[in-house]
Structure formats: C-alpha cells, structure tokens
Design a protein around this nucleic acid. Structure first.
Length: 402
DNA sequence: TCCTCATTGCCTAGGTAGTC
DNA sequence: GACTACCTAGGCAATGAGGA
C-alpha cells in the first residue's frame, strides 16, 4: 500500500522532473557524440589533406630522383668518356707542379703518404650502384653541377669536363680533409694528397717524367693537346697538388713528350702557401680518387690524335643499341616476345624453377632471397625519400620511416 | 569484411661475353 | 659495330594469411 502510494506520489511530483533530466542527459550525450564525431571527422579530413600533401611530396621527390639519376648517368658517361683525354691534356700542367714535387722531396719528411680513403668504384648490383650515384649527386647538389645533356661540341665538352673534374676534386679534397685532419691542415702536406694512392703509374709519374725531361732538355714536340683545344685556366688549389717520387715505378713509365715552352716553364719553387697557377684540369689529375674512380690505363699509349673519339664501353654501346632497338616498336615487341619465350623455355627446361619444384632447402633459400630483395627495395625507397635534395620535410620523414 | 603485409610468378632492364 | 645469348636484380600484380 505504502509502496503504491509512494510510486504514485513520485510519478505525480517527480515524473516531470525526471523526464526532463533524462531528456537533458540524452541530449547531452548526443551532443557530446556529435561533437566527438565532428572532431573525428575534422581530424580525418585533416589527415587526408596531409596524406595528399605527402603523396604529392613523394611524387615530387621521386620525379626529382629520376631526373637526378638520368643526369648522373649522362654525367658519368660524359665524364668517363672524357676523363682520360682530359688527364692527358694536363701533362703539360705537370711541369708547373714539378717544383712542388721537388720541394716536397727535399723536405726532411718527404711527402708523408696520405691516407686518403678513395671513393672506390661501387662494385656490385646495379641497384647499389644507382643508389651510390644518387647519394653522390645529392652530396654534390650544393654545387649545382651543370647539366651534361646538351653537350654537343667538342670544346664545350672539354670545358664541362674541366668543371666536372673540379667538382669531383673539390668533394674529394673535402673528403681527404675530413678523414685526415693533419692532411687537411697543411696545404703543402696535402699537396701530396692521394698521389701515391693513384693506381695508375702512368698518370702518377708525369711529374717525375718532367724531372727527366727537364734534366735532358731535349724533347720539343707536343704530342697531345691540339692547338685548338684550350685548357681552362683556373686558380690552383695547392692542397690537391701532389707529387711523390717513387723510383720503383719509374721504369714502367710511358714517356710523354713536352714542348719546349712547356719544359721551360719556370720551375721555381713556390713559396709556402702560395697558390700555384695550375690549370684546374691538372688539379683534377692530381686529385685523389679521381683516377681510382675511373679506369684509365687503357688509353695510355694511345695515339693522342684519337682522343677526340674515345672508345665506348661495351655497356655504353649496348645501351645505345637498345635505345635504337626500343625506338622501333616492332623490334622492341620482338625482343620482349623473345624474352618471354625464353622465360617459358627456361621454366620448361628446368633452368628456372618454380618454388614448388625446388627442394625444401632451395625453397628456404629462394624465400630468403625474396625477403631480402623486398627488404632492399623498401630500404632503398625510404633511403631515397629520406634524402630529398631540396625538400626535407621532417614530419614526412618521420611518418615514412619503416 | 576490410586492410595490411608477405609470398610468388612473370616480366623487363641492363651488364657482359661471345659471335658474325 | 651490330647483334645475340645469358645472367642477375628489380618492378609489379595476383594471391594468401592473419589481424582488427
């Protein structure tokens, strides 16, 4: 009885209040939900915008990297084609540095051998070489190396190569300084930079030959460097001029002939710290690492008149051939068809095995290779976008790190 | 059910050696 | 020099497995 009374009383007196409170609570909850959903929605919208922006950035980076790779390939091919000839031009520059070398030898501590870590040529898979090229390009991007694409004329080519060599030389000199502080501190000491490390004794020995030539003073013909070819004169950098006398190599030195004018260049010793007025190209010759980067012995002994048409490497020839072939859709289609055919043939003959045809051990090995390849692929991708040349956006980098 | 990641197979690019 | 054959590595799409 009392309970019923209580309930009716509550319904009569508090029902409206309770209903109102519940309504308010429901509205509050709904409002809060709407607010949260709205916030979430806004957040998602922001994220989408950010993602789009990042995608755009990634696209730009990829495009930039592609351009860099193209440019680098052309640059390397031009450089490797021109470098040997370019080195030979600088034989006359050796005369100017001979004095330095003599001075160097006369010192109490004759030319301490520099321990320069040469940027060894990247031997390995093509993807690695590509990466190295990319990183090199990135490293050098501050210098704004002129594009080699438009190189057509001989003279301009030489000019460009001179510039390129200077860039190379600069970075390598920087390397040497970084690695060996003592070497980097002493201009004269660093004058020997990398010379003894240069693998090619023919190039190495030009100053020594200069010594010999100067002592005899007999030769007078210039067998290289056509008169029309002008060597760009640039302010010398003493620290990369290096001469080291290595008698053991002297026997195998191919002898260059120098003009009288070249031979009679003042061989006076420059004062310490005074820049030698050497052709920049000669500096490149002396630059550590440059000769190690590029295979040069093949051109030594070649008739200098043939320098203008350097032999292409097999890879270059093959690239050109393929470019011509791919330019013709029919030939390209034929090639692709034959490749596909070969793939099928290899599978049929068991040269290429599907994973199921392999033994358990071979399957594990194959899978490991696939995993590694995928890992490399991912790493190279992240490495690529982690070192954008011009748009290092930290937040993006953090987000994209694996 | 959707998403992400790994696996797999196929194909292509590019280097090298050899042949014509 | 042009071309072919062979090889290796990488790209890409299809597929499967597992988790949210």
């Amino acid at each position: 009885m009392d309970v019923n009374l209580t309930i009716s009383l509550m319904r009569g007196q508090m029902g409206a209040v309770i209903e109102k409170a519940v309504n308010i609570a429901v509205e509050t909850v709904l409002g809060e939900m709407i607010r949260v959903v709205g916030l979430k929605f806004e957040e998602i919208k922001r994220e989408m915008t950010a993602k789009e922006k990042e995608n755009e950035n990634i696209r730009r980076m990829l495009e930039t990297s592609r351009c860099q790779m193209k440019t680098m390939r052309k640059y390397i091919s031009v450089l490797s084609a021109e470098e040997p000839r370019h080195r030979l031009y600088q034989g006359d520059g050796d005369m100017a540095t001979t004095s330095t070398g003599m001075h160097c030898r006369r010192g109490p501590n004759p030319c301490p051998r520099p321990r320069v870590s040469e940027p060894t040529p990247v031997a390995g898979p093509s993807w690695l070489r590509q990466q190295m090229h990319i990183s090199k390009e990135t490293l050098r991007s501050d210098s704004h190396i002129p594009e080699q694409d438009t190189e057509e004329t001989h003279a301009s080519t030489i000019h460009k190569v001179v510039n390129s060599s200077s860039h190379l030389m600069d970075s390598q000199a920087l390397l040497s300084e970084t690695i060996d502080p003592i070497w980097g501190q002493n201009p004269l000491a660093s004058a020997e930079t990398g010379h003894t490390d240069m693998p090619d004794s023919s190039v190495l020995s030009a100053p020594m030959m200069a010594d010999e030539c100067m002592s005899s003073q007999t030769t007078s013909t210039l067998t290289f460097g056509a008169p029309s070819l002008k060597i760009k004169q640039e302010e010398a950098e003493v620290e990369i001029v290096c001469v080291k006398d290595e008698p053991a190599e002297a026997g195998s030195i191919p002898r260059f002939e120098y003009s009288t004018a070249e031979l009679h260049q003042p061989a006076g010793e420059p004062e310490l710290g005074v820049s030698l007025d050497l052709p920049a190209s000669f500096q490149a010759l002396q630059s550590p690492g440059t000769s190690a980067d590029l295979a040069i012995p093949a051109f030594i002994g070649v008739d200098p008149t043939t320098y203008t048409v350097m032999a292409k490497t097999a890879a270059e020839k093959q690239r050109e051939y393929r470019a011509r072939r791919d330019a013709d859709p029919a030939r390209r289609e034929k090639y692709l068809r034959s490749e596909r055919e070969r793939w099928r043939r290899d599978v049929e003959t068991g040269k290429k095995k599907r994973i199921g045809d392999l033994g358990e051990k071979a399957q594990r090995w194959r899978r490991k290779q696939w995993r590694d390849a995928k890992e490399r692929q991912k790493r190279s991708f992240f490495k690529l976008i982690a070192t954008p040349p011009d748009n290092p956006e930290p937040s993006l980098m953090v987000l994209l790190q694996p």
